[in-house]
Design a protein around this nucleic acid. Structure first.
Length: 760
DNA sequence: TAGGCTCTG
């Protein structure tokens, strides 16, 4: 390597030469596309699975809509014809666009400009690989109740297919809904499609996300988050506003998408039965499931053996290299690999996937340290960390152009796997690990642990190298290790607390949640544990039916214990404070902790801390933030995450609106009598209490587990006889967060039934 | 003494 002394310590990592090469999927010519029956496209299959193609088991029901792949030599030229999709390159975290434009009010020259833009885009739309399959897709959806569409990133499926449906008249009796797991995607897709249609957001094309609904009566295509669709189910149980539901990114298997699978399937059946019975004004519901992987057989089997259509994407080839030997320290291996790439490979930035902030900051320091000895002819290697807890200004740094002759190395968590698309990445370094949230249903405890990723996750990471040009993916594990990985990430529904989902199901009319039609069934103990929690909160009665209180709780866009606190705040007359603290607790953390300024950050935090714990400390931060009207410099000086604070204000606003609608006065305040606020929180969190033991540890009142106050808590190191907490997560220990001091006697007052029963 | 990532009319 670059330094003889260090070279002795740092051996070069050998990667296998014969790693799989992912063929180009760039389409030679849209017209060349033809409908070939029965098999997924070989190139696509190989690209996605890394294996030789196998015929799908249900051969009769699959259709191949993919086009001829060409070598990458031609593809660079060809690609220039294809318009770059704006929504892919836009920076995330832009604040929601609140313009609910109305073309009808636009001056004529503006609408003409929109039409002109749409005409230009129309040419490009026709060149997309998917265009040649247009008629087939329309026909299949018209002829079938459910259709599965598999297509890689860049196939244009999410922007084009809803437009095809609209053009074919499928929106005549209802809106075409397209659900997305992420807000940014919903916004950007809607903006792009509005342009292509020749309109502004809020007319034929709109989006609906939390805090921002741009749809109107005339909206034909509506991009929305899956959470919003779940909310709509509460008021429109048959989704009568919709004619087609497109469930996009189905392979991600978020909890909400999984719940939607079962709900839309049931709604489709109910609507069909009503039509059969001659009910008027009911139209059939079409379901389209879109996924990026070839795990389509599972979706098909679930949706009555629905037909599967395969569409090729537009990805450049990515050569995958595995290490010859297993690596004992993947951070060290990543360091070595980054310098190897920098010295041996052509221009292009590097993206390294790590598991968390600590690893990222360690590697950042190491890269800076070793860069000192790098011969000048190689140019600088610039580390750029990115993870969710950063403030937005820091996050934006990764989008700054790389200085000439230098190379950026992006150090990222999974945020770069799906949420953020970083330009100019040619090299991906995959450590094969991520931090994964788990849930032990039997004891009801969440965990956050480093675990191996799945094969589909590894492929997703690999794909990040081939978005703009052919790339290389260095896997810091052997090919054998890859083969041993699970095929897919375990669906979220099997590894999280289900209380919120069950409350939503119950409130949407599902009486027996154990018999619900899950694609992947959560464990019985998981369901029971969550139902017990809802029962303890008073949301379910002895028979497991939804109570009046449960109905009210389901209406609030917060987790069940917080909803309970909100309802209780009316009784305790502290709604203003309850809403504010819930809003503050609903973001990850409002404090930032840059590792190089840890002491300064801790010092800045001290002035907000309340002796009574985190709930009141958070309230102090909000008061400070409002007194300076959210000044950015104030946030920076106090190590407060401004982006998260703005989110807090939005949540507060929404909770105020919801409270008003529920007949609760959101301005009712307890003044400075903060004891009332803590007692109020105990109404939702009485199961999360712990008592100080003679040995100075805290023992949970329910379950008897020894819990540790998280070092970021205002209560860290404090000894109070009794405490309550909002969250318990196992990492290296059982850490509790959101901790405040209480008095043990408050517990019986907060939940007489619960603690009465337990004593009996 | 330490926080993967989403998301809620």
């Amino acid at each position: 390597m670059f330094n003889a002394a260090r070279n002795a310590k740092r051996k070069i990592i050998t990667f296998g030469d014969d790693g799989e090469t992912i063929p180009s999927l760039i389409v030679e010519d849209a017209k060349a596309s033809s409908l070939t029956e029965l098999r997924p496209d070989a190139a696509l299959n190989e690209a996605v699975t890394g294996n030789a193609p196998e015929p799908p088991s249900g051969q009769e029901k699959s259709i191949n809509l993919s086009c001829t792949a060409v070598s990458n030599g031609d593809s660079n030229n060809k690609r220039q014809h294809i318009p770059k999709r704006k929504f892919e390159s836009q920076k995330p975290y832009s604040s929601s666009d609140r313009r609910s434009g109305n073309a009808a009010k636009q001056p004529e020259h503006v609408t003409e400009a929109l039409r002109q833009k749409a005409r230009e885009l129309a040419k490009h739309r026709k060149q997309l690989p998917i265009f040649s399959a247009r008629e087939t897709i329309i026909k299949e959806v018209k002829d079938n109740a459910c259709v599965i569409i598999v297509g890689e990133t860049g196939s244009g499926k999410t922007t084009q297919i809803p437009q095809y449906f609209m053009e074919a008249g499928l929106s005549a009796h209802g809106t075409i809904a397209v659900t997305q797991p992420r807000r940014v995607a919903a916004i950007n897709l809607a903006k792009r499609v509005a342009q292509e249609v020749g309109t502004t957001i809020g007319n034929q094309v709109g989006y609906s996300i939390r805090f921002d609904d741009t749809s109107s009566k005339g909206t034909k295509i509506k991009y929305m988050t899956d959470g919003i669709m779940l909310r709509e189910l509460l008021s429109d149980r048959l989704l009568l506003n919709y004619s087609v539901i497109v469930l996009d990114e189905a392979h991600e298997r978020t909890l909400r998408t999984d719940i939607l699978f079962g709900m839309v399937k049931s709604i489709q059946k109910q609507r069909a039965e009503m039509i059969e019975q001659g009910k008027k004004g009911i139209e059939p519901l079409k379901i389209v499931v879109m996924s990026a992987t070839l795990d389509a057989e599972k979706f098909s089997a679930y949706f009555y053996n629905a037909k599967i259509m395969y569409i090729s994407g537009r990805m450049y080839p990515v050569k995958v290299l595995n290490t010859i030997e297993p690596q004992s320290d993947y951070v060290d291996a990543a360091l070595v690999t980054a310098f190897q790439i920098h010295q041996e490979e052509t221009a292009g930035d590097i993206l390294i996937f790590l598991t968390g902030q600590e690893e990222i900051e360690n590697l950042e320091k190491l890269i800076e340290e070793y860069s000192v000895d790098l011969p000048t002819r190689f140019g600088k290697l610039i580390p750029c960390p990115i993870f969710a807890a950063q403030d937005s200004a820091t996050q934006q740094k990764i989008f700054e152009p790389t200085p000439a002759g230098c190379r950026k190395v992006i150090l990222a968590t999974n945020i770069a796997e799906t949420s953020i698309t970083i330009p100019n990445i040619r090299y991906v370094v995959d450590t094969g690990c991520h931090k994964s949230r788990g849930y032990n249903a039997k004891i009801g405890i969440e965990s956050l642990l480093i675990e191996p990723i799945s094969k589909s996750s590894a492929r997703q990471r690999m794909g990040r190298a081939g978005r703009e040009a052919p790339g290389l993916c260095f896997r810091l594990y052997t090919e054998d290790s890859f083969e041993q990985l699970e095929e897919d990430t375990v669906p979220e529904i099997k590894r999280c607390n289900l209380a919120s989902a069950i409350l939503a199901l119950k409130a949407s009319g599902v009486e027996d949640v154990t018999k619900f039609d899950y694609m992947d069934r959560p464990s019985k103990s998981g369901l029971l544990k969550s139902m017990e929690q809802l029962y303890a909160l008073g949301a379910l009665d002895d028979k497991g039916d939804l109570t009046e209180m449960g109905k009210k709780m389901a209406g609030f866009p917060v987790d069940p214990p917080y909803a309970k606190v909100l309802l209780q705040s009316e009784v305790m007359e502290c709604t203003k404070e309850a809403i504010e603290i819930i809003a503050l607790l609903s973001v990850d953390t409002i404090f930032t902790f840059p590792s190089n300024k840890r002491e300064e950050a801790n010092e800045a935090r001290q002035k907000f801390l309340s002796l009574d714990g985190d709930h009141l400390s958070l309230l102090n931060v909000l008061r400070g933030y409002e007194s300076v009207k959210g000044d950015r410099d104030w946030c920076r000086e106090n190590f407060i995450n401004g982006r998260h604070m703005r989110h807090v204000l939005e949540v507060r606003k929404q909770l105020i609106e919801f409270s008003e609608r529920a007949g609760i006065n959101p301005r009712t305040s307890c003044g400075h009598d903060y004891e009332i606020v803590l007692k109020c929180f105990l109404a939702g969190f009485f199961q999360n209490a712990a008592l100080l033991q003679p040995d100075s540890t805290y023992k949970a009142v329910v379950g008897g587990l020894t819990v540790n106050i998280h070092p970021s808590s205002a209560m860290f190191g404090k000894k109070r006889a009794a405490i309550m907490y909002n969250e318990l997560v196992f990492t290296t220990k059982h850490y509790i967060r959101g901790v405040s001091a209480i008095e043990a006697s408050w517990l019986a007052q907060a939940a007489p039934k619960y603690f009465g029963q337990r004593q009996a």
